[in-house]
Amino acid sequence: MAMHKISVTINGAVREAEVESRLLLVHLIREVFRMTGTHVGCDTSHCGACTVVLDGNPVKSCTVLAVQADGSKITTVEGLEQGGKLHPVQEGFTEKHGLQCGFCTPGMLMTTSALLERNKNPSEQQIREAISGNLCRCTGYVNIVKAVQYAAEKMR
């Protein structure tokens, strides 16, 4: 069984690991690095709970191999807060009640923070499209959209 030495920059810190070929990125993050903010929901590439930002793009970390992330920059929900200050999307989700049970929230935060990097002023339609790969069973999305709009305004 082939093992691979990999190095990733996760939330700004360089981390090394020796991984089996089949180890999934989400398991590297949760079980090797012990950062459990990233959730596993469906485990079948449908729900987006496991979303992390990989080299600038939000992706489903349950459907990427850890070894494929070698040399990449990863941001997880733990990396959003900077110097004790919440990221505007995190603030938006608290202010606008963008969560209930919170299971989908880490994925939602990663997708929407990446959206706002690319588009400072997304329309409601664009926000809804951006989060269409992130399922929320609780909120009905209304307050999630409001939370992202709040963050967009704050970041402008």
Partner: peptide
């Protein structure tokens, strides 16, 4: 293209 999968899947 926008009807294929979802935006996260389309990033890969």
């Amino acid at each position: 293209v926008p009807l294929i999968a979802d935006p996260l899947v389309r990033n890969r």
